[in-house]
């Protein structure tokens, strides 16, 4: 189950989308989210869906993989769809079997909302699937750069994010080890009443916290020894490279917005 989840996962590759500047991709996603709300008719939602599938195609991520990985989202999607179908009471009555009544407007709304939801989830997933977390961090750091003026600790936030990302696998490993160690001592997390299970988590969390603090202390020392003194006067090893295709991607998005506006009813 967990292996199949694709939230926050990164699939290395070298498609056009993979090679885009992370700043362009982040901006793209935000603008796209805004644009989606222009759509309000069958044609415009059709265009959106087509555009999204095109982006998925360009990213060379298999549609099957994407759909499979987003299964939990589909449950939510079906739920919202049903909600709209049953509770909207406008337009012609389409189906009427006893207590189930489905109206035309309900069906329309249900389909539209589902498409909206779907394209948003697809596009944001494509962002995280094609961009390494560290590039996303870099992109965010640069995009937020102007806010340094208003004393937003942009560099510190970005560093915090990248260190957290760096330590996730380490702490996961550690959790596994502690779990096994506690199981070897007879602790049982997998079964029993909920209350017992929650109690069994405590001896897992405490050693994990103790070790995390130890790690943080060591890391701080290692950073200081290597001359870390905050963001001032620091240079960047990772360079972002904004190319013509990045500008083009945003232009395409403007084109999409224009088209949606034109076909809007």
């Amino acid at each position: 189950m967990m292996e199949k989840m694709i939230f926050g996962r990164f699939i290395p590759g070298d498609s056009i989308i993979h090679r885009m500047d992370p700043r362009a991709k982040i901006l793209f996603v935000f603008v796209f989210i805004a644009i989606v709300f222009i759509a309000n008719s069958a044609v415009t939602y059709g265009i959106l869906l087509g555009f999204t599938l095109l982006v998925v195609f360009l990213s060379k991520i298999r549609l099957y993989f994407l759909i499979n990985g987003l299964k939990p989202v589909f449950i939510l999607l079906i739920f919202t769809f049903l909600l709209h179908i049953f509770f909207t009471r406008e337009g012609d009555l389409l189906v009427d079997i006893g207590f189930i009544e489905i109206y035309e407007e309900g069906l329309r709304q249900g389909i539209f909302i589902s498409i909206r939801f779907l394209v948003l989830v697809f596009i944001t997933s494509i962002l995280t699937l094609t961009t390494s977390p560290i590039s996303i961090t870099d992109g965010i750091e640069v995009l937020l750069g102007p806010f340094k003026r208003v004393k937003l600790p942009v560099h510190e936030l970005a560093l915090m994010m990248s260190i957290s990302l760096r330590f996730i696998p380490t702490l996961m490993d550690e959790t596994g080890k502690i779990l096994k160690a506690q199981m070897a001592r007879g602790s049982d997390i997998g079964s029993g009443p909920v209350k017992e299970r929650i109690k069994a988590v405590v001896p897992l969390l405490i050693p994990l916290f103790v070790s995390a603090f130890k790690r943080a202390e060591d890391l701080a020392t290692a950073m200081e020894v290597r001359g870390y003194r905050g963001g001032e006067g620091r240079t960047r090893y990772r360079q972002l490279d904004w190319r013509f295709k990045d500008s083009l991607s945003l232009l395409v998005l403007a084109g999409l917005a224009g088209m949606l506006w034109y076909f809007r009813v």
């Binding site: 390494s132 990302l165 130890k214 790690r215 060591d218």
Partner: peptide, 9 residues
């Protein structure tokens, strides 16, 4: 500790 001094991604 090899893990606790690795800062970069």
């Amino acid at each position: 500790n090899p893990d606790n001094q690795f800062v970069g991604a």
